[in-house]
Simulated assay, not measured.
Amino acid sequence: MSRRLRPLRRHQILTRSLYAAPLPEPGGPGALWTVEVDQARDGDARLYRDGEQVARAEMPASLPVPGGRIEVDAGLYGITRMHLVTEDGGERRLPPVPGTLEYRRARLARRSPAVSRTIAAVAVVVLLVNLVLAAPVALEMLTGIDAVAARFGTFTSPVTLPGWLDTGLLVAGVVAAAERALTWRRHRVVDAETIWTAL
């Protein structure tokens, strides 16, 4: 039984992502194809044609559309892939639907590039600070495993943070990671810190 696409509510912008694009169809004027990912529901990718659900898949998802497919994937902090892949191998990113957090972040980048760059730079600094502070703690945890300790010995982290600062850095790391996900930025060193905040 098909289901209609629900309107986006303001309280859903942190958990619900919507991307859409009009696509031509053989013998017709085409339709608006929308992909929904609702982390508060189940995190699956749902595909809608003119607002009617036509497909659903678990992540990573490949959803068939006229002329190709839409590939979707998501991580802990947001969408990591939302691309239309055509039959000839070309691909393009689907734009976010107005009202979504992704759309608002993209609009900020267009309207205030300097503010956008500052936010992006602060996010990188936060993630790098967290990475530096998390590395010795993670090493201590790893050498706390009996098998690892027997082979390599134990390690005691020289970093000891008060609880309030530890919590503050964790929250800042989550926010910074979400900012990076919203702007589709990814770097194997900078974003390695997001693995730690996911623990």
Rank of each mutant, 00 (worst) to 15 (best):
D42R: 02
V189T: 11
G173D: 00
V137G: 08
R46P: 04
G173H: 00
R185Q: 12
E87G: 13
T143S: 01
I119L: 13
V115S: 11
G51A: 06
I195C: 09
L8V: 03
A150D: 14
R111F: 04
V174Q: 10
T118W: 13
V148Q: 01
V124R: 10
V97L: 08
R6P: 14
T118S: 10
E140P: 00
P98M: 06
T156A: 14
V137P: 04
V124N: 14
A172L: 06
L5W: 13
A74K: 03
L131K: 15
P113L: 04
A176S: 03
T160A: 09
L199C: 10
L5K: 13
T197R: 11
V190N: 12
N130C: 08
G75N: 04
T34Y: 04
R56Y: 10
N130W: 14
L128D: 12
P7E: 13
L182S: 05
P66G: 08
R10H: 13
G51K: 10
R105S: 11
R186T: 04
A181C: 07
R111L: 15
L127D: 07
Q53T: 09
R104A: 14
R81L: 10
G168S: 03
L169V: 10
H83T: 13
A74S: 06
F155G: 01
R110W: 10
P60D: 06
W184H: 14
